[in-house]
Write a protein that binds this DNA or RNA. Sequence first.
DNA 1: TTGTACGCGTTATCAT
DNA 2: ATGATAACGCGTACAA
Lengths: 344, 344
Amino acid sequence: MAPDTGDPAPSGRPATSVDVARLAGVSQATVSYVLNDAPGVTISEATRARVRAAAEELGYAPDASARTLRTGRSDIVLMPLLAAPIGTLVLSLLNELVERLREHGLTLALYGDARSRGVVAARDWTRWRPAAVVVEAHRLTAASVRRLHDAGCATVVGLGAEPSPLVPTMVIDDGEIGAAAARHLLGRGRRNLAAVVPAERGLDAFGERRLGGVTAAAQAAGAAVRCVDLPFDEDAAARLAAGWAAGGARPDGVFAYNDEYAMLLMRALQDAGLDVPGDISVVGADDLPLGRFLRPRLSTVRVAGDVTAAGLAERLARMVAERERDPAVTVSLTRVEMVPRESS
Amino acid sequence: MAPDTGDPAPSGRPATSVDVARLAGVSQATVSYVLNDAPGVTISEATRARVRAAAEELGYAPDASARTLRTGRSDIVLMPLLAAPIGTLVLSLLNELVERLREHGLTLALYGDARSRGVVAARDWTRWRPAAVVVEAHRLTAASVRRLHDAGCATVVGLGAEPSPLVPTMVIDDGEIGAAAARHLLGRGRRNLAAVVPAERGLDAFGERRLGGVTAAAQAAGAAVRCVDLPFDEDAAARLAAGWAAGGARPDGVFAYNDEYAMLLMRALQDAGLDVPGDISVVGADDLPLGRFLRPRLSTVRVAGDVTAAGLAERLARMVAERERDPAVTVSLTRVEMVPRESS
DNA sequence: TTGTACGCGTTATCAT
DNA sequence: ATGATAACGCGTACAA
C-alpha cells in the first residue's frame, strides 16, 4: 500500500473556502470565482495561482450541500428504484454508467421507494434538488413533473415501453423482442407458435409486452399463438414437455421469455424425447453467452447491443445541460437483433 | 393513471419551513421541532396538529442540502464504484438493498471514480458529508479514513478479501470458495486437480483468490493442482479439451472459476469425447440456475446464500447509528456451501 | 477584488 | 409549560 501523502494538515474538520481565502490572503468571493472559473470577473493570474495552491494545500473540496443550497440545484441524477425488468437492462450498464456520469460531473443516486408515485413520490425526490430524475414513466403525473421542474430539476426522463406524453422518454420496447422472434419462427415455416412466459405474470409487465409482440406478429401472418405460463422449475417444465411429447396439441415453434426459460424448456423437451429443432424450434431472448454451449446452440434475440453506458451518460448530460423537457424526444434503448443459431 | 391529487397549491417553488410556519401561525423553530419530534421541547398537541396539517397541505419536504449543511451529516450511503468482481455480488442485491436502506432513512449514492484512492478520493467522497462510505478496502489509507471521519462520516465500511486494519470490513472470501471445491474433489478421490481461471488474470484478484484456495486445500491433502488459463472462448476450450482427450497429462478433477467457465469447459470436454464425471469431475461456482439444466447437472459452490439485502441494510444502518469504527468488526458476506450434483 | 446578503433548516438561548 | 428569536453552516453572486 502506497504511503498516503495527502493533506499536509490532516487536522480537524475539512477545509472551507474561508480557510482557503485566509491562507491565500484573499476574500472568500475570490476563492469561489477562481475555483469556478467564473465568467465576467477579472482576476490576476498571480492571485489565481495563490488561490489554487492554497486550495491544494488544504485539500479543499467545496461542500456539495452548501453549493446546492445556494444554487438550488445539485449534480445528482436521481434514479428511483427500478422495478425488476427495466432494472436488468440498466443494471447491467450500471457500473460503467456511474463512471461515465462522473465524467460529466454527475452523481448517480439510487432511491428506494418502489411503491410510491405521483406527487407524493416527487416531493421526496425533490429533497436533494436533483439535476435530473430518471424514472419509470408510469410513476409520473402532470403534477409531479411540474413539481420536479419547480424544484429546479433540469430534466425529467421517463423510462417505459412507449413514449410518455409528459416527459422525454427512454423507450424499452419489449414488444419488438417478441415480434422479432415470431417473425423468425414464421420465416422458418413454423405456423403453430407458443410463447412461454413466467407463471407469476403481472409482477412484470415485461413478459406481457414480449408476449404482445409475438401475438401481433403472428396475427399479422395469420398464424396461431398460444400462451403458456411456466414456473421456473424443472418439474413443471418436464410436465409441459411430457404433454407435448404425448402428441397433444404440440406447437412447432416456441418463443421463451428469455434465455433462461429457453434453456429450461429445451432441456425438458430433449429429456422428453423431442427433437429441437426437428419437432420444435426454440428461441430465447437476451443472448446469454451460455446459450452457445447448448446443443443445439440456442437461437436468441439480442437486445440493446449498441446501447452503451457512455452513450447514455452523454445523452443524459446533454439533456441536463439543455434542460430538455420536450415529451416528443425519445431515445430508444432497445435495438433488437435476431441471432439465429441451431435451435430454430 | 389515477388522478394526481397532491399539493392543492402547485405553485412556484417548493414550500419551505417558513411557509409552513406562516400557514400554521407558528415560528419556523416550532415547525422543525414538531416535524423532527425533537426531544426536550414540549409542544401542545393542538399546535403539533396545526403544523402537521400545514406541512401536508403545502406538500412540504425539508430541503436535504439545508439540513445537511446545518447538521454536518447527510443520510447518504456513498458507494464509490465497485470493481467488477465484488460488483457482481453486491449488484445482484442492489435493487433490494436500495429499498431496504430507504426504510432506514438512508439513500444510496453511487460514485464513479474507480481509479482514484487514498486521500485524493476521500476528499471527493466527503463533499456530500455521507453518513457512511462503503468501499473496497484497498482504496483506503489511514489518512483517508481520518479525513472521512473528520468530515462527519459515521462509519467507513471496507469491502475486501480479508479484514482491513483500518475499518470494519465486509469480507468476501473467495479463497474459501476454491477450497470448498478442492475438498469436495479430493473427497471424491480425485488426486490430480486443475483449476481453470480466466486468461486475463490480474484484471481481477478474484480468480487469484479462488485459485489460492484450491491450491492451499490441495497441498494440505498432498495432491497436485495445475492452473490453466482459459479465455472465455469456445475454440480455446476445444483445444484444451482435445489435448486432454489425446491423453496428455489429464487432470481427473477440475475446478472452474465460475459456473460459466464450468459450462464452457464441460461442453468442450463432452464434445471431445470425454466423460464427465467419469474421466473428469467438474465443479463450478456461483450456483447459476442454469447449471441444473446440464447433463450431467453441474456441481457448484454456492456463495452467500444467506446474505440478504435486508440483512445488509440493517447492519449498515446499525453501523451508522452506532458510529461503528472498530476494525475488528467483520461481517462475512461469503458463507460457502458445496452443492454436489452429477458432474463430480 | 471585496463586502455582504441570501438560501433553508437546526438548535441554543431567551421570553412569556 | 410553550414557543419565539437569532446565530450558524458554507458557497455564490450582486453591488460596491
